[in-house]
Nucleic acid binder design. Structure first.
Lengths: 226, 226
DNA sequence: GACTCTCCCTATCGCTGGTAGGGGCAAACT
DNA sequence: AGTTTGCCCCTACCAGCGATAGGGAGAGTC
């Protein structure tokens, strides 16, 4: 494990054959992450599932770090980007919801994102798109960069905490539920009082509450800074 | 590694002696995480630094998972909670900024938070406080729980991405910088255009932009739902 | 027929988190 | 006083990890 290597740029793997292979590896890897979580994953198990022995993996992929970066970028790539013709707010709304969906569809993904910037090709394209959507509509460079960071951090952060609570493998939610139920009421009166709401699961509505709050604010900032 | 165990409730360790020991372990562990990052950490190195052999660690602590949960809760505990007499908005503002500061002061902390709810005593107290601050001021249970989740996810998400970008051990920021500088301009025109702003580092201002946006929105929601 | 490139292999390394089981020592009990 | 209990550490070990070294079989090319 190379530590801080977020895995890009990775060698291009131009020819069709190799590329297919790598895509397959990423696909299976993601499959395993979805099933058992990142904690249980190992490159050896992945190799076994691919029908090869562990060292062969290293011919296709530089290491576990790069592998995860590839998987992450694949997941980010599932988020479709809207037309640049649309309004900035509509574009950010679409991307925000789309990215969240892509991330929570693969509960391990936010965990991969943890210490890593999203610097794969798909991540960069998404980043460029968001910043571009703002700059196209009279946000200055500074406000566009502020806006992007607030926006993307919110989306990623929300998705990451969301998966921590129930979307994990094998219904971690049950554990959270019983844990909350067992809390001493007099010690945490307010938390226990709303524990029911906590798990009610209207995550999309909650997500949208914060997202639209941020977009509202960006609209205000934009008019103020012109 | 027990997998999904976020480590609470842990045995109380009532007597003063043992308690001191555990606190010391947590302190040194956090120290090591700050220095070398979570990737480089190992329980054996920790044991060595504590002057004991690795298996002895397991007398004090159930495992690495619980250890990290303890460390995380210690970090969360660094965030001072404001008086409940203050206004809800002031309280959330204080906690938001305080929690972010506590997290980014220890760059590995957000990473520990990744797949884990903050369910240590300090985390629970903070959670209860935030929800209580809202419920004290006429937010309904549902809106209070919505508000808490949006709020806490934003703070955690922001801090986590923030550390991913430059607060990491050994100036990861340099790497990000050269990476951005090397990007093909015609492929990512908007990203490269604002790359300078990106790294300018006014994170507190950006953080506050989003936080106040969320708090503004909560104020509006509150009046609408009454 | 020799060369090269692709893709896999066996063997092995140093390290990880964690367990089994025991020893010494001090305080507490009888 | 002698025994027991509980604390805290140890040596020895395990299976599994990510990764590397180095080689070999097959296909395509000159």
């Amino acid at each position: 494990m190379a530590g801080q290597d977020w895995g890009y740029p990775w060698p291009d793997a131009n020819d069709g054959e190799t590329r297919l292979d790598r895509a397959e590896i990423v696909r299976v890897c993601l499959e395993m992450l979805d099933e058992d979580g990142v904690e249980q994953f190992s490159t050896r198990k992945l190799a076994a599932r691919l029908g090869i022995k562990s060292p062969s993996l290293y011919w296709h992929v530089k290491g576990k770090d790069q592998l995860f970066a590839l998987v992450l970028d694949h997941v980010v790539g599932q988020c479709e980007l809207p037309s640049r013709q649309a309004g900035w707010r509509e574009q950010l709304d679409t991307i925000g919801h789309g990215l969240r969906q892509a991330l929570i569809a693969h509960p391990a993904a936010p965990q991969l994102l943890l210490g890593r910037p999203i610097f794969g090709p798909n991540g960069l394209r998404l980043t460029d798109h968001v910043i571009g959507a703002l700059r196209d509509h009279e946000f200055g460079d500074k406000l566009a960069s502020y806006g992007y960071i607030v926006f993307i951090n919110y989306v990623i952060g929300f998705a990451s905490q969301e998966t921590a609570f129930g979307k994990g493998p094998r219904q971690q939610l049950d554990k959270v539920e019983t844990f909350l139920a067992a809390l001493p009421e007099q010690q945490y009166p307010d938390l226990t009082a709303v524990a029911g709401e906590f798990l009610a699961g209207h995550f999309t509505a909650r997500f949208d509450l914060g997202l639209s709050a941020i977009l509202d604010r960006l609209a205000v900032e934009k008019t103020q800074h012109r």
